[in-house]
Simulated scan of single mutants.
Amino acid sequence: GDLDDDNDGVEDDYDCVPHDASISCIDSDEDGVDDDDDAFPHDSTEWADTDGDGVGDNADTDDDDDGWSDQDEVECGSQLVDSGSMPLDSDGDGECDALDSDDDDDGVVDSDDAFPIDPNEWSDGDGDGIGNNADKDDDGDGWEDSTESDCDSDPMNVEVSPKDMDGDGACDIQDPDDDGDGVADGDDAFPLNKAEWLDTDGDGLGDNSDLDDDGDQFTDEYELDCMSDSLDPDSSPIDSDGDGICDAMDVFDDSTSNDTPGFGLISLISVLALAALARRE
């Protein structure tokens, strides 16, 4: 038969287009690629060498010589014939992120890691976008973690905060004056009650609300009027005549009377009579 059907000077076996004389090309290895475009014109199994390393792409396991095998690039979604396209490998462990269960190699799998590509963070207790390792207030309750630890509180639980009776920002454990009444807890009979700090008679009722601070059975107001000390149980109003009215308030103090029976009554009548006479005059 005719060895050159289109009479273009190239035998059909080596002619890229054996039936078209207008197209003249040679395919020496009969791999379907013109010798001019074939990196391996005499090797029918190879025709391209993307990275120019002398190994044809068909045999080369890393066509673009980017350090990632063609198979890995296919599985990882990068271009296997583009050296500028490489799989993302955040932790540099040789396993692309698409296949790596722990992208940042922090020991926490990505599905449980709030920061899967940050090896320094993996949890965000309060969801504020700042990892717990860097966040000074992990639970977002307004108390720094270090303070909560010192105050026997839980820095990871927003529902548990340090007790701060007076709201001064110092937890009660560290606050020398829990109720903020100006009296140190050690000297305060009621360290958690800002309205009370003394209990002179020890009856459990603070002096500010106790009507008888020293427990001597005389009200503070009465002792004040009678000029005795309302904070001293040994200081009671003087009532010389025992009529229930202290001397300081007793108009008819008969403490100096003699022993004559009825003298006090007679004195009272005399005073009333003199007063009546004075009104007449």
Rank of each mutant, 00 (worst) to 15 (best):
P18Y: 10
P18C: 11
H19G: 05
D20K: 08
S22G: 07
I26E: 02
D27A: 00
S28H: 05
D29T: 01
A39K: 03
A39S: 10
F40E: 02
D43W: 01
W47M: 01
D49G: 00
D53L: 04
G56A: 00
D60T: 05
D64N: 13
G67A: 06
G67K: 06
W68C: 07
W68R: 05
D70I: 10
C76W: 00
S78Y: 06
V81M: 09
V81C: 05
G84H: 07
P87K: 05
S90G: 03
S90Q: 00
D91G: 12
D93G: 06
G94Y: 07
L99D: 14
D100L: 10
D104M: 13
D106S: 14
D110N: 12
S111P: 01
F115V: 02
P116L: 01
D118R: 03
D118Y: 00
P119Q: 09
P119S: 15
E121S: 03
G127V: 02
G129T: 11
I130V: 14
N132M: 02
K136F: 06
D138K: 08
G140R: 02
T147S: 09
T147D: 10
E148I: 03
S149W: 10
C151P: 01
S153C: 05
S153D: 05
M156G: 00
E159H: 02
C171T: 09
G180L: 04
D181T: 02
G182W: 01
G182L: 01
A184H: 04
D188C: 12
K194E: 13
A195Q: 15
E196Y: 10
W197Y: 15
L198S: 15
L198D: 15
D201M: 13
G202R: 11
G204T: 12
L211Y: 14
D213L: 08
T219G: 15
E223K: 05
C226R: 00
C226D: 00
M227W: 07
D239Q: 13
D243K: 02
D247A: 07
M249V: 07
M249E: 11
D250K: 01
D253Q: 12
D254M: 12
S255C: 01
S255D: 06
D259E: 12
P261T: 10
P261F: 11
I266R: 11
L277Y: 06
A278C: 05
R279F: 13
E281W: 04
